[in-house]
Simulated assay, not measured.
Amino acid sequence: MIGVAIPIPDPYGSALQSKRASFGDPLADAIPTHITLLPPTEVDGEALGVVEKHLRRVARTERPFRIRLHGSGTFRPVSPVVFVSLAEGIGDCERVQSRVLSGPLSRTLPFPYHPHVTIAHHLADEVLDRAFKDLAGYRAEFEVWGFSLYEHGDDGVWRRQRDFVFGSGSGPDT
């Protein structure tokens, strides 16, 4: 099982992960803070090389862009999720996501793509309400340098496997 996402850099990523844990979200320590580009997807191990080649091609032709996070949002009542909203960088995320979801990763998503940073998921309504209120004034800005490939471990933890840097298509370990 793999996923592709824009990691949220520190200090924002770790602070939001701690905030998620403070709401009692059991997945807080298993999911690094991110903006999803490719949701959890089953990939045959032998196809991983083709997937990585595709991701390098996508990254190679992209350029860094700015993300500005501002305030909270929710997908309720459709899905019990509270998130930090993007105020800048939405179109850039949509473009990159569309390109990631092509070629060997082409698939139909169950919901329209909406870039966001999940902060609470599948928790009691009163906890989701508190998360929504607590993050209503949240603000952060950072430059997006690229995206990362994550793998879902047997222990249920998502781990960053490889970075794909915009303009070069690969990270320092590629």
Rank of each mutant, 00 (worst) to 15 (best):
T33Y: 10
P26C: 11
D173L: 14
Y138W: 15
I119N: 08
G49Y: 01
S18M: 10
E62D: 04
M1Y: 01
V81W: 05
R20A: 09
S22V: 11
L27C: 04
P39N: 09
L109H: 01
T61I: 14
D154E: 13
G103K: 11
R56N: 02
L86Y: 10
R95S: 08
F65V: 00
E151R: 00
V157L: 03
E151T: 06
G89R: 08
F166T: 05
A15F: 01
T33W: 07
K53Q: 02
G73Y: 13
L109R: 10
P40F: 00
A28E: 08
D134V: 15
A131Q: 09
G91H: 11
S98T: 15
G73T: 04
D25A: 08
A15I: 01
F164I: 04
E94S: 12
V82L: 11
V84W: 08
S22Q: 14
K53V: 12
Q97K: 09
G13Y: 04
P39Q: 03
I119P: 11
R68Q: 10
T108L: 10
P104D: 03
I67M: 03
H114M: 03
V81Y: 00
W145C: 06
V81L: 03
I35C: 02
L109S: 09
H121F: 15
G89T: 02
H116G: 04
R63E: 15
G137H: 14
V96E: 08
R99C: 02
F23M: 00
E42Y: 01
E143A: 14
W145Y: 08
R57S: 01
P77S: 03
S14T: 04
P40A: 11
G49S: 11
D25T: 12
V43N: 05
H54K: 09
F142Q: 09
D173Y: 03
H54N: 08
R160A: 10
R107F: 10
T61Q: 05
C93K: 02
L109T: 06
G103E: 05
I119E: 13
S85P: 01
S18N: 02
G89M: 03
Y150E: 00
P40N: 01
E52F: 03
E126S: 15
E126R: 14
V4R: 00
V96I: 12
D92Q: 15
H54P: 01
D163N: 05
D173I: 10
R57G: 07
E141N: 04
G156S: 11
I31Q: 09
A140Y: 01
V82Q: 00
D154S: 09
G3R: 07
V117T: 00
V100G: 10
D125L: 12
E62N: 08
G167N: 06
S170W: 09
H121L: 15
G45S: 13
G156D: 14
D10N: 10
L55T: 05
V82W: 06
M1P: 14
A120V: 11
Y150H: 09
V117P: 06
H116D: 01
A30W: 03
D92C: 02
F65G: 12
R162M: 14
Y138F: 15
A30E: 03
V43K: 00
G73Q: 06
P32V: 14
P64I: 10
F65M: 09
R130A: 15
P112D: 10
L123C: 08
D154Y: 07
I2P: 05
V78W: 05
P77A: 10
K133N: 14
L123A: 07
D92E: 14
